[in-house]
C-alpha cells in the first residue's frame, strides 16, 4: 500500500495526480526509452519497439566531447519529435531550472527528466515537482538521493550511471546500491527506522513506507552507460524496471538493429539464449570511455545531491 498518493477530494475528473503520474511510468515497465536528437531517430526508435523517446539536442557522448553549458532543447526540435511519433516523448530540463520544465510542460512533453546530463542551473535546489501536471523522472546514485527526489515530487527514478561512456559499471553500482539499501531497510526493526531516515536524509514516513513494501513507491529504471543487449539484460536481472539508453544506440554502427536487439534483450532478460540470438551481427558498439579515466569533476553522476 502506498501512503503518498492521495485520492482526489472531488468527484470531478482530476489531472496531474500522483496516481496518473506514477501510473504513466508503470506503463513503461519492462521497456526501453531511447535518446533521440532528430525526428528520424525518433521514428527508428519507435519502429524498434521503444516504449518512449527522450528528445534532446545532443546525446551525452557528444555533450561530453563538446563541453560547454548544456541546456534544454529547442522547442522546434521537441515539436518535430512529438509530431513524428505516437509513443510518449520525454525531454530533459536542467537540475533546478523550473522554467525549462514549465516550457517543456507547455509543449506537451509527456515526462520531464530533471537531468544531471545537462549543466545544473541551481547547485542547491532541485525543481519543486509538485507544482507541475507533467510527471518528472530524476536520477539517483543511492537510496537517500532517490527518496529526496520523490519527496520533491519525482514520479519515476532512474539510477544515474555515467552517461555518454558506454561503460555500464556505474549503472551497476548505483542499482546495486539503491536496491541493497532497500533490502537493508526492510530488515530493520521499526525503532531503527528513525536513525535510518536521518542517515538517508529523507523523510521518516517515506523511509518507513519503503521499508514496509520492500521497493520504491515509484518505478525504478536504470540509465547511464548501457550499450549492448547484454548490458540491458544484466540491469534488468539486477532489478531495474526498465532501461534508458542514451548514446548507446545512435552512436553505434547500426542503430536500428541495435535498438531492436536491446528492446528484445530487455523483454527476455532472463533468457540467455534469446540475449545471445539478438546480440549476433550487431556491428560496432559505441566507442567506450572508461569511467575511471574521466576526471572526477567531469563525471555527470556527481551532479545532483
Amino acid at each position: 500500500m502506498t501512503q503518498t498518493p492521495q485520492q482526489p477530494a472531488t468527484d470531478q475528473p482530476t489531472t496531474g495526480t500522483d496516481r496518473v503520474k506514477r501510473g504513466m511510468a508503470e506503463m513503461l515497465k519492462g521497456g526501453v526509452i531511447m535518446d533521440v536528437v532528430t525526428a528520424e531517430q525518433a521514428r527508428i526508435a519507435e519502429d524498434a519497439g521503444a516504449v518512449a523517446v527522450m528528445a534532446l539536442e545532443r546525446v551525452p557522448a557528444d555533450i561530453r566531447a563538446q563541453g560547454g553549458v548544456s541546456r534544454a532543447s529547442d522547442p522546434d526540435m521537441i515539436d518535430s519529435i512529438i509530431d513524428s511519433v505516437s509513443i510518449p516523448v520525454m525531454a530533459k530540463a536542467r537540475i533546478g531550472h523550473f522554467v525549462e520544465a514549465q516550457v517543456l510542460q507547455s509543449l506537451g512533453v509527456d515526462y520531464v527528466d530533471e537531468s544531471e546530463v545537462l549543466t545544473p542551473a541551481d547547485y542547491a535546489n532541485h525543481i519543486d515537482k509538485w507544482q507541475f501536471d507533467v510527471p518528472f523522472v530524476c536520477g539517483a546514485t543511492n537510496l537517500g538521493e532517490a527518496l529526496r527526489r520523490i519527496t520533491e515530487g519525482a514520479a519515476m527514478i532512474r539510477s544515474k550511471g555515467e552517461a555518454g561512456t558506454g561503460d555500464v559499471s556505474n549503472a551497476v553500482t548505483h542499482m546495486r546500491t539503491i536496491l541493497g539499501e532497500i533490502r537493508r531497510l526492510s530488515a530493520l526493526s521499526k525503532d531503527e527506522l528513525y536513525v535510518a531516515a536521518k542517515e538517508l536524509q529523507a523523510p521518516y514516513d517515506l523511509v518507513a513506507e519503503v521499508a514496509e513494501r520492500g521497493s520504491l513507491p515509484v518505478v525504478l529504471f536504470t540509465a547511464g552507460g548501457i550499450a549492448t543487449p547484454a548490458d540491458a539484460a544484466m540491469m534488468m536481472q539486477l532489478g531495474a524496471d526498465g532501461v534508458f539508453v542514451g548514446s548507446g544506440i545512435f552512436k553505434s554502427g547500426n542503430p536500428a538493429q541495435r535498438a531492436e536487439a536491446i528492446v528484445k534483450a530487455t523483454t527476455f532478460h532472463d533468457d540467455p539464449a534469446m540475449v545471445a540470438k539478438v546480440s549476433r551481427g550487431l556491428g560496432e558498439a559505441m566507442v567506450g570511455l572508461n569511467v575511471d579515466e574521466i576526471p572526477a569533476p567531469h563525471r555527470l553522476s556527481e551532479r545532483g545531491w
Binding site: 468527484d11 482530476t14 496518473v20 501510473g23 512533453v109 501536471d133 507533467v134
Partner: peptide
C-alpha cells in the same frame, strides 16, 4: 489511441 490527449491530460475520476 491517445484520444484524451497527451500525459498532461491524463486524469482520474
Amino acid at each position: 489511441r491517445n484520444a484524451f490527449g497527451r500525459q498532461v491530460a491524463s486524469f482520474e475520476g
